[in-house]
Design a binder for these strands. Structure first.
Lengths: 336, 336
DNA sequence: CTGAAAGCGCTTACAG
DNA sequence: CTGAAAGCGCTTACAG
């Protein structure tokens, strides 16, 4: 069975290939093609089960009706949830999504951008890594529509949609303070990215407002260390600071590691320590006790980012940079 | 900044576009192009930062150097782990992977196949849904390389690589019997797919060998019901059969649901009931107590499926159907 | 109302 | 040793 082309249809329907093309693309009416001919072409196309070659169309039009989605790690539930919503939204406007993971590796991220550029995607949605600013600049120079999500570069003129990270951790910390906690720790990674900085700031400011801030209770963990090393560093930190009565984990994977560490140490939640983590996760709902979280507004972020991307794809010139901040949601469970 | 083409290089290097094409594709030597010219072309390509258009190459050669990977649900850890290994393996042989999720929906699966067909991927790796046999037949008719994973259609002549499901649940059940459990339940979904049938058979045969089989202890849950309904049906089942002292969950999501149900009911693991689930998951390692599992040989499956696909892509005619069975691994944790 | 022709960016058989 | 030309499957300005 060989591939059916526009030419086969033209032959069978006894018209020119231009006519076929117009009909297939719904421009039959507009081009003043007779109803009879339109019907005939459609019937033949149907009968031969014709599928236009995306590749030929792309080469000709320069458009692929596809979006490249670059996330940190598609096997992290936050990103896979995000990806699914974005894919659904894109499907509604008849776009395909190609997704891939950076693993928080700058070099890999650059490769992915180039590979998607080569595949000629019409737009990019990206969770950038730390040093990706220049690659993003390249996309801007190429006039490629881009939206950053989850994080961004403060100085760069690119649309982005992120959670209100400052507010999220500020209100979570506030909640712990109101609960009566006095020695509230925070576990962050060593990333210099703005979203992590803002989360830490929200925590710090909330404590400072109450005169409770203690810089010894801030732990920064290496992102690229392995699970055992991370658990060990958490154990060490909590042993050293036995006065800690509450902790805020700034990402879900740090929260999960923390829970593992507490388990190994025999620390009881919320008896010995109250826990809140960023980013909801199935394991947090299933954990004994269930873990409170600052949940990201995944749906809002996904929908908004597609919208921003679409407005760029529709008219790259008229488009203006938009910075969108979406409020997260503090979900209180048994862990506090 | 406009896109650099082979033509721009030809102009700048003062050679014909054929020469450029040969050099870029490393066929310079073979075509007897002088070292000087090769060097000049390479330098110009480098200087202009030339990237070949994948789309033009595809249209011309009919190949895309890409693989379509269709899984049930990319946000399920089993599939995302699988996808990552497949992606890495593919990258090693310089192939891209496009992945997408069926959500166990036949219609969506067909759409995805057609959409990947339109994108002209060179090969398919698919976890088929129940009624996808005819769509797979279509791929065979089109002479498209296909490998099925995780499951397959017994009568169909297609290469596949799956875990030895029968052996996995047989040995897990055997383990529970040897532990002294007498009333061992199993929780399955209503799928008619062979992999689920085999898991249930392994369980059944192990019990029959010891004269312990009791058909009342088999629960079949609707796949497409929501989480609450699933929890409710598990609670009902375990209340009705209070004698159950062990349970085997046949997929990780059923296991997770089961744990939630046990939590709601106040059933203690392994005090009241021993638990083993198929498919390892972070939550199983983190759960209190940690949950024993029949882990799938994800790496083996991924590597083998790429191998089988490659041999088809290399030589579609000489290729012979291969059915590959990979042994799973029983990991005993605190839950038994 | 419809067709012939150019062109998107490549690859490759053919000619010299 | 290198170039001119055909063709992959489309879209669209132009001509009639």
């Amino acid at each position: 069975m060989k591939k059916i082309t526009i030419k086969d249809i033209a032959t069978q329907a006894q018209v020119s290939i231009s006519t076929v093309s117009f009909v297939i693309n719904g421009k039959g009416q507009k081009m003043g093609i007779s109803t009879n001919v339109i019907k005939k072409v459609q019937d033949v196309a149907e009968k031969l089960n014709y599928r236009p070659s995306m590749i030929a169309t792309s080469l000709r039009t320069g458009k692929t009706r596809s979006i490249g989605l670059i996330v940190e790690d598609i096997s992290n539930q936050f990103f896979s949830d995000l990806a699914r919503v974005i894919e659904d939204e894109a499907k509604n406007i008849d776009y395909r999504v190609f997704y891939c993971s950076t693993g928080d590796d700058d070099e890999r991220s650059e490769e992915l951008i180039h590979s998607l550029l080569q595949a000629n995607v019409d737009g990019f949605i990206i969770t950038p890594t730390q040093n990706l600013e220049s690659s993003i600049d390249l996309l801007l120079k190429l006039k490629k529509p881009v939206v950053l999500i989850d994080r961004y570069f403060p100085g760069q003129k690119v649309s982005h949609v992120v959670m209100d990270n400052y507010e999220g951790s500020h209100s979570a910390t506030k909640f712990l303070i109101n609960k009566g906690c006095k020695n509230i720790a925070v576990v962050n990674n060593t990333s210099e990215m703005v979203q992590m900085k803002l989360r830490e700031e929200g925590y710090r400011d909330a404590l400072k407002e109450e005169g409770l801030y203690n810089e010894n209770l801030v732990l920064h963990m290496e992102y690229h260390s392995n699970e055992e090393a991370r658990i060990a560093s958490i154990i060490k930190f909590f042993k050293k600071n036995a006065e800690i009565d509450a902790v805020l984990f700034l990402t879900n994977y740090m929260g999960l590691t923390g829970l593992q560490a507490f388990k190994d140490m025999g620390i009881e939640i919320p008896g010995n320590i109250s826990v809140i983590s960023f980013d909801d996760h199935d394991s947090f709902k299933l954990h004994t006790p269930t873990i409170s979280v600052v949940a990201q507004p995944i749906e809002d972020i996904a929908i908004k980012s597609i919208q921003l991307l679409m407005s760029q794809m529709t008219d790259m010139e008229a488009f203006e940079v938009e910075k969108s901040l979406k409020k997260g949601k503090l979900i209180i469970r048994e862990s506090v």
